[in-house]
Design a protein around this nucleic acid. Structure first.
Lengths: 115, 115
DNA sequence: TCCATGATCAACCGATTGGTTGACAATTCC
DNA sequence: GGAATTGTCAACCAATCGGTTGATCATGGA
């Protein structure tokens, strides 16, 4: 993710579909980490973990920056926000059920208040 | 998705990572559709499309119900809501940036109003 | 200067994916 | 009953995925 083209929702959701990658993202919430630090909690070679970081990078979820011999990674919220707002589209769908429930409760209240 | 065990976030995000599947989900927002109807917009065999429906089913995103010789599919919002609330966890993260921006703008307004 | 460290790369492996075809089963309609 | 419709299943294919190993490279510290 060096060029300006926004990675697709495909890439973002695919990146999120792996628990190792979600673990790394969660770790990054506390602040930037090196690739080595991101790899440490997982029983996996550094090369393997670095591949996951690459997937996150290409999905636009993290930014890598070489500093000396380490590579520092930071969470980039934009694409997470994009995925979130994609799902937001459907909020109406599950809210509707709650609305129906709320309406039922409200009507129930009315019955009690003006019997 | 017949048993009660909730499909993992892995399955949900994986299911969402394919444009064909997202297209089907979008179609289902307007109401239940048969497998054939879901397949129709895509240049793909029915068997291929039915496989996608299977992935959505196993991810808990749709419910299949056989009715005569057709299978009717309906959107199940629960798992979409689960994915949404997973991402919600990070809202704080991108809101923070907006807050900083808002604060900058506000300070800018103050400069203009009380020069 | 020399060696240990942090990370990437290429090649490889088995498992999974997205898609096809062909056969099959169940239902509907004539 | 017989034919058409709707969908599933199994087998197969090329491509991708998650992971390993081994080599390489640049950097930092003694």
């Amino acid at each position: 993710m060096v060029d300006g083209s926004a990675p697709s929702l495909d890439d973002v959701f695919r990146a999120l579909s792996d628990p190792t990658r979600r673990g790394m993202i969660e770790r990054l919430r506390a602040g930037p980490r090196t690739v080595g630090e991101l790899a440490e909690p997982f029983s996996m070679t550094l090369a393997g973990a670095a591949k996951h970081v690459g997937v996150l990078d290409r999905a636009g979820l993290v930014a890598r920056e070489r500093r000396g011999r380490e590579v520092h990674c930071a969470l980039r919220p934009e694409r997470l926000a994009a995925a979130h707002s994609y799902l937001e589209q459907y909020a109406e769908f599950w809210d509707r059920r709650l609305d129906v429930l709320a309406e039922l409760l409200e009507r129930d209240d009315e019955r009690k208040e003006t019997p």
